[in-house]
Design a binder for these strands. Structure first.
Lengths: 260, 260
DNA sequence: CGTCTGTTTGAGCACATTCAAAAATTGTGG
DNA sequence: CCACAATTTTTGAATGTGCTCAAACAGACG
């Protein structure tokens, strides 16, 4: 059970969730009872399908790491975004027949809030709509960056960026010496970065030899010198993460701020 | 002047726009006067910066083709999405310091609706928020697909997909014999597809030789057999486009439908 | 201890890029 | 309307990156 009060979470500021007693997953819901709420346990590989019916289901990750996935008809898989503890998503990427789903990359606990029965009333509720707007908007910002990453960074830059972002994501900020645990396989990383498994592995071996990254096991690593990592990238990872957090917290302008 | 009444446009159903007399750019605005509206002419290469201040500016393309662009610090450029006549976007991709902007790929006319002065009131207006939600949601769906395209399709597939989508985009549906005009240079196409100029040109030459695509000039082409094109791709372009249109028109579920 | 799964490493190949130059197109001024 | 300049597109040759196929290695689990 998570009881923290992460003020940067876009949906924070409410009571405890009635299912998981977390403040992470209390979706903006003034009446506090306009949703059916459940806890869902997923094993690695399990999926939640983002169908038209799921559009009004809000999923918040309570434990573990999940991914929004997409496939082509021949089975090629691409991970669109990673969702970790405290992050919120929903069935929004949901053209009826699109091959999109939420997949657990390791064992997950997810809080599902189903607003379907209250759709009519919620359409008239500005703070509810503002909340799903903010979820969607953050996903758009993330997806937009990922487009640029896949379109314009080479394989080494993608892997370095990934490792750097996982440091920032787990620490909240850069702490150079303590270890980060990767919650996903090399294949998942490859599917996220638009590479293949062997390439990811090869690049990580090279980074290890170069000393830029220290690996304790295939899934545990540390970054001795974060600035050195950033010098290898054409983006300032840390600054960008802070601006995202600030954006979620204060709202970058008036429309994004949560009503009272 | 555009006077058509394209029911599939997400913001349709309103009066004529007071600036351009189009029904395309009438953003959901029940009071009808809560925005300052202007027509903006852009020459090829001109930019509208998507800053924090621009978040409440809604841009609808009246003429021409524009792109949402992003750059890295070393100048590498990636086009995130293309916006053509009737499509709506805004400064939403707008972390304060992010290098994101809207750029005219050819000469454009854009209708700008500035809601900044009415932000307070509009936050309480569910149908306004629902409208910006729908704009953002559609952009998310598009960006998500583009991630999969860049991550998992090879260069030939990307170019074929691009040409096929430009057919669908300009026709509304597939009409095999009449010509499509590309509104952008090879470099722009390359920046959109995460390739380089020469590669795009080479692939198009190969497609021309193979007979899959008929080029009348560098910017004019036709697709003699759309089904043959689709057989080269792991996605059904036409079906997907129809589902997008349906999604925008009817709403894929209750929350997406526009309030009366 | 053996099996299964996931990771690493190697060799060879294909694809996309880089650098360079030619060809085609567009725009301008006479 | 033509000639010339500037830009864009196309083509070529060589290089390098990332992929495929294959095998070895490591760790988890029965």
């Amino acid at each position: 059970m998570i009881t923290g009060s992460d003020a940067r979470h876009p949906l924070s500021g409410a009571d405890e969730c009635i299912a998981c007693h977390s403040r992470f997953c209390q979706f903006q819901d003034p009446a506090r009872r306009q949703s059916r709420t459940d806890l869902i346990s997923l094993n690695r590989g399990d999926r939640l399908v983002a169908s038209a019916q799921a559009c009004l289901k809000i999923w918040t990750i309570i434990q573990g790491t999940a991914a929004i996935c997409r496939t082509f008809e021949d089975g090629r898989r691409q991970i669109i975004s990673l969702e970790t503890i405290g992050e919120t998503t929903c069935g929004l990427l949901a053209a009826p027949e699109s091959d999109t789903w939420l997949e657990a990359l390791d064992d997950c606990v997810i809080c599902e809030q189903d607003f379907s029965s209250y759709a009519g009333a919620l359409r008239e509720n500005p703070s509810f709509i503002l909340s799903i707007f903010r979820v969607t908007h953050k996903q758009l910002e993330t997806a937009s960056r990922h487009v640029a990453t896949l379109g314009r960074l080479d394989s080494t830059e993608r892997v370095i960026l990934f490792l750097a972002e996982m440091v920032v994501r787990t620490k909240g900020r850069c702490v150079s010496d303590s270890a980060v645990t990767l919650p996903m396989s090399r294949e998942d990383i490859a599917d996220y970065l638009g590479l293949n498994t062997e390439t990811v592995s090869r690049i990580m071996s090279r980074l290890k030899k170069s000393g830029l990254v220290r690996f304790f096991s295939p899934t545990e690593y540390a970054v001795p010198d974060f600035a050195a990592i950033e010098r290898r990238l054409p983006v300032a990872v840390l600054r960008r993460a802070n601006s995202m957090a600030g954006l979620a917290q204060a709202g970058c302008n008036s429309i994004r701020e949560t009503a009272g």
